Simulated assay, not measured.
Amino acid sequence: MKFVIAPDSFKGSLTAKQAADAIYTGLKRVFPTAEYELVPMADGGEGTVQSLVDATQGQFRHAGVLNPLGQPVSAEYGLLGDEQTAVIEMAAASGIQFVNEETKNPLITTTYGTGQLMLDAMHHGAREIIIGIGGSATTDGGQGMAEALGVKFLDAAGHPISRGGGGLADLATIDVSGVDPLVAQTKVRIASDVTNPLVGAQGSAAVFGPQKGATPAMVQTLDANLAHYAAVIKATLGTDLADFPGAGAAGGLGAGLLAFTQSQMEKGVEIVVRETRLKERAVGADYVFTGEGAIDFQTQYGKTPMGTAQAVKAVSPNAKVIGVAGNVGEGIEQLYNLGIDAIFGILPGIVDLPTAIQAASANLARTAENIARVIK
C-alpha cells in the first residue's frame, strides 16, 4: 500500500514538513511496512519558501535589505536543491508585518527590499526565481523592486522620484539602461492567484489599498498614480499593464515584475506541485493525505488541498484523497465533486486556540492513526 502525505502548513503551529511528519507518525502506527512519500506543500503564500526548501533539500539564505519603510532588516529566502532556483516571499522584505496602525502608509511604503532579495539570489547563482507576492504593505506598482534591480525612475528634471505610491505622480521617464545584466538571464515565476488589474474599481489601490492604510482620498491618488505609471511603462517599453489580470497583485508588484523582469504569472500551488515533483511521486498511490489549518468553501480556489487532489488524481485517478484540518468550515460539500474524497477535523473537542496550536502535532498524528484504522 502506498501513502502520499502532502499537506500545507498549519498556520501558527506546524510547518508543512512538521505536518507531514505528524501524519506519517500516525499512519505508521497502523501500516508500519507501507510505502510513504512525504511531500511538504504550499500554495505560493506564507510557508512556500519553507516547503520548497524542505521538499528539495535546499538551504536558506539571508540578505540585508530595506523594509517597506526604508529601514534596514535581514530577510530570508530559499535556494532550492538544484542551487539554481531561488524561492522568495515578497513579504519577507516588504510585508505588512513591518508596519503598524501609525506607520502604514502606501504613499511611502516601497518594494525596494524585494528587489534587493531578488538581486542577492541572482548573484548567488539563481537563474530562476519563484516569488510569492502576497501579504504586502505596498502600493508602489513594483517601482521600488525595479529600482533595486537598476531601473531609474526620473521626474521631468531628470531627478529620481521618491519611493512609494505617492512618488509615481512625478514620474516622467524610465531608464532601463542600468539594469543588472543578470536580470535578463533570470526567469521569474510569479506565484499569485490574484487576478485584479493594476487600476480601476477592481484595481490594486481600490481593492487592497484600505487594508494597507489608504484613506478614500489616498485610494484616488494611488489609483491615478498607478494609471500614470502604467502609461509611462507603455510609452517606454510598449507593455500595456493597466488592465492586465494579476498586475494589481501585491500593490502592483505584479505589474512591476511583468514590466521589468523575464516573468510570467502562474498559480502558486501549480508551481509547488511542479517543483516538488508531486505528480511523479504520487504515481501508484492508494491514499493521499493533505490539509492545512482550515478547509472550507474557499479551498476550491487554488488552495493547497485542492491543488494536491487535482494533481494526484491526474496520475492516480483511483487514489483516495483525504483532507485534514484544524478547522472544517462551511461549504465543504462542494469539494467532494472536485477531487477530495473525505475531510476530517483534528481537534478532540472544544479547546482554546493556544491549546489547539500546542497540541497540533499530536492531534494530527492521532487523527491520521484513526483514519488508518478505518482503512485497515
Rank of each mutant, 00 (worst) to 15 (best):
residue 331 G to W: 10
residue 319 A to M: 06
residue 218 M to V: 02
residue 150 G to Y: 09
residue 54 D to H: 09
residue 128 E to L: 08
residue 351 V to N: 12
residue 297 F to M: 12
residue 4 V to D: 05
residue 233 I to C: 01
residue 299 T to P: 11
residue 297 F to S: 15
residue 20 A to I: 09
residue 203 G to Q: 01
residue 119 L to C: 09
residue 337 N to V: 00
residue 301 Y to T: 11
residue 241 L to I: 04
residue 50 Q to D: 11
residue 239 T to E: 12
residue 140 D to N: 05
residue 113 G to T: 01
residue 364 L to S: 06
residue 157 A to R: 14
residue 19 A to R: 06
residue 81 G to Q: 12
residue 164 G to V: 06
residue 364 L to V: 09
residue 215 T to F: 10
residue 166 G to E: 02
residue 40 P to Q: 15
residue 281 R to M: 00
residue 72 P to E: 14
residue 47 G to E: 07
residue 260 F to Q: 00
residue 109 T to K: 11
residue 195 T to H: 01
residue 349 G to Q: 05
residue 233 I to A: 02
residue 167 G to Y: 02
residue 358 Q to I: 00
residue 348 P to N: 04
residue 331 G to Q: 02
residue 1 M to T: 10
residue 266 E to S: 12
residue 120 D to Y: 06
residue 276 T to H: 15
residue 204 S to I: 04
residue 72 P to C: 11
residue 349 G to W: 01
residue 188 V to E: 06
residue 227 A to F: 01
residue 95 G to E: 09
residue 201 A to R: 02
residue 256 G to H: 08
residue 250 A to C: 08
residue 204 S to N: 05
residue 243 D to Q: 12
residue 281 R to E: 07
residue 335 L to I: 07
residue 101 E to V: 01
residue 291 G to R: 08
residue 65 V to K: 06
residue 177 S to E: 08
residue 97 Q to N: 11
residue 48 T to V: 01
residue 196 N to R: 07
residue 155 D to V: 01
residue 179 V to W: 09
residue 134 G to C: 02
residue 46 E to R: 01
residue 279 K to H: 03
residue 174 I to G: 12
residue 229 Y to I: 02
residue 76 E to A: 10
residue 340 I to V: 01
residue 237 L to G: 02
residue 249 A to G: 10
residue 255 A to N: 05
residue 271 I to F: 00
residue 187 K to P: 00
residue 70 G to A: 07
residue 294 A to T: 13
residue 257 L to S: 10
residue 122 M to W: 14
residue 368 A to G: 06
residue 296 D to W: 11
residue 132 G to A: 00
residue 245 P to M: 08
residue 51 S to R: 08
residue 71 Q to L: 12
residue 95 G to S: 04
residue 127 R to I: 11
residue 191 A to L: 13
residue 242 A to S: 14
residue 259 A to C: 12
residue 312 V to I: 03
residue 296 D to R: 14
residue 24 Y to I: 09
residue 309 A to K: 05
residue 343 I to G: 04
residue 265 M to S: 07
residue 309 A to R: 04
residue 30 V to W: 07
residue 48 T to Q: 02
residue 113 G to S: 07
residue 335 L to R: 08
residue 40 P to R: 14
residue 349 G to H: 01
residue 144 G to Q: 13
residue 72 P to M: 14
residue 123 H to R: 12
residue 143 Q to T: 13
residue 329 G to S: 07
residue 68 P to F: 14
residue 371 I to P: 04
residue 270 E to S: 15
residue 199 V to I: 13
residue 96 I to N: 10
residue 201 A to S: 13
residue 371 I to Y: 01
residue 70 G to P: 13
residue 319 A to V: 04
residue 337 N to G: 14
residue 155 D to W: 04
residue 104 K to F: 07
